[in-house]
Design a protein around this nucleic acid. Sequence first.
DNA 1: TTGTATGCGTTATCAA
DNA 2: TTGATAACGCATACAA
Lengths: 315, 315
Amino acid sequence: MAAVERLGYVANGAARALAMRRTMTVGAIVPRFGGSSFPTMIQALETELSAHGYTLLLSAPEHHLSKEPTILRALLERGVDAVALLGEEQLAHVVPMLSASRTPFVMMWAPPLSTGHAAVGFDEQEAAALVVKHLSALGHRRLGFIGGLTADNARALRRFHGFTAEVAKRGMTISETAMIETNYGFEQGYAAMERVIQVLGTSDGPTAVVCGNDYLAAGALSALDRAGVKVPSELSIISFNDNDFAPYLHPPLTTVRLPIREIGEQAGVYLIARMRGLEPPERSPLHVELVVRQSTGKVPTNSSRRRRAARRITR
Amino acid sequence: MAAVERLGYVANGAARALAMRRTMTVGAIVPRFGGSSFPTMIQALETELSAHGYTLLLSAPEHHLSKEPTILRALLERGVDAVALLGEEQLAHVVPMLSASRTPFVMMWAPPLSTGHAAVGFDEQEAAALVVKHLSALGHRRLGFIGGLTADNARALRRFHGFTAEVAKRGMTISETAMIETNYGFEQGYAAMERVIQVLGTSDGPTAVVCGNDYLAAGALSALDRAGVKVPSELSIISFNDNDFAPYLHPPLTTVRLPIREIGEQAGVYLIARMRGLEPPERSPLHVELVVRQSTGKVPTNSSRRRRAARRITR
DNA sequence: TTGTATGCGTTATCAA
DNA sequence: TTGATAACGCATACAA
């Protein structure tokens, strides 16, 4: 080791990889990486991997389903020992290629058991249900939803389904013009809320709107502010908290906190076990959590007024 | 190629790297990656690299100056053809190791010529000066600054210096209690602004506060909202726009837009040229830009009142 | 054009 | 324990 130090010797990983038949490298394919909440997940993944001597090879295609098999191929040619993918929707060639090369892989932010492959995620529908329940408890009966594009985003789709299912289950109604699908982003949230504002107070108007993520929520809040609509007394907003900043918005929103860091962490743990030929440890389910930051937002209804009156009497 | 397709053949990159003496891989060391504005930069870098057949090996140490030479070493052992570093402050061993292995490297988000090494960044002091000039033009005379920790963050330090220098140059004054250094973050911005609120209206109180990035700004806005302070009529806020969301806050802030994506892009272009043994193209300087989103925020002064009166008379 | 041998730097195997 | 040697899979230079 003294000689190593003195001569500045650095091992040749290519030669080592050739002889050992492993590169101590893990690939990740994460589309639309910048401007999303994926970096948090990737940071956690990288931390876990590097703690065990692995290095992360990151591919960040600009478009999700960029049709080229070349991305995964490039990773496999680099000899990655395992691969982490984003989402369960993968191009047809992906899984076969991975299987053919006997490369362990895991799908991140995907429903655990749906595809038959290893996946780590949380129950997005439950998260949406949590939100609807909360609004229901506050007395809201008519809701809107500003969410991501469901066509190319399975996560947005699950949130949307969770939302509509719970609304139906509770006999609540949906404001048609306040059901908006759009790209994630501030401008998009702003534009969407501008449309919702048109129907506020009308028979189609919602008393609460669920935002698919905090970028949308921030934009929506801006639009409401500009229009002079009071949050949450005139319209309640609640948001999925992809980026953990909705609770700090102005006014702070009630949110569902999503375990994003944990996805990366568990994905790392899983892959490391697989690469070592060990049985991956039982994964503890990831929990979503409602974080209430608004004290108001309760919609007074006749029945709740009656209950309050009744309570007073009992005392 | 038909046989390749049929047999599912995938080249062995390790063997290829051994023979070719290059891996077509670039390493990046980017500390505190999640929750920062670095992902935008990295996405751009990766896009540029992958367009030329290179793959990105990402290291994301949790702490900036994690004392271990092992991070760079791991990258070099993987045989990266080039390395991208964040910032100009590097551990003593970094540059020597890179030079010894004759690995091209570039420092991202660093002042272009200060270190004698290749660096791509923008003039952060100019950005700060732009902000101060703007506030000065609005009539502000007494400013505060809520910024990042300057001790371990050269970028925050440059912004701070640019701010104080321009304030001094213009004969403006500084509100001592409104000069706050803290970690970037919503909570931190909130807490910092709470302290500033204490002195608002007093002789030490600022009429405008510059926020070191948009996380801080969002927190600060929340604190102001809670305290019932009107923005910008009672206190103006302006922010460096690391994450491009300050313009969409509530109320939208005037910001300095920073060319973050462009850093990654130029770093990629530079490294690719170096790896090919070509002379890197002349780099066009990266420009910061003031984005005004607040129509108000003007502080009425005696002189401006006089001017307005004068104008009225002229008509 | 097609085939063959050698080197790349390490690990692993086997013999001493 | 130490030393020599054969893979590892590809690129390249050279020969046919």
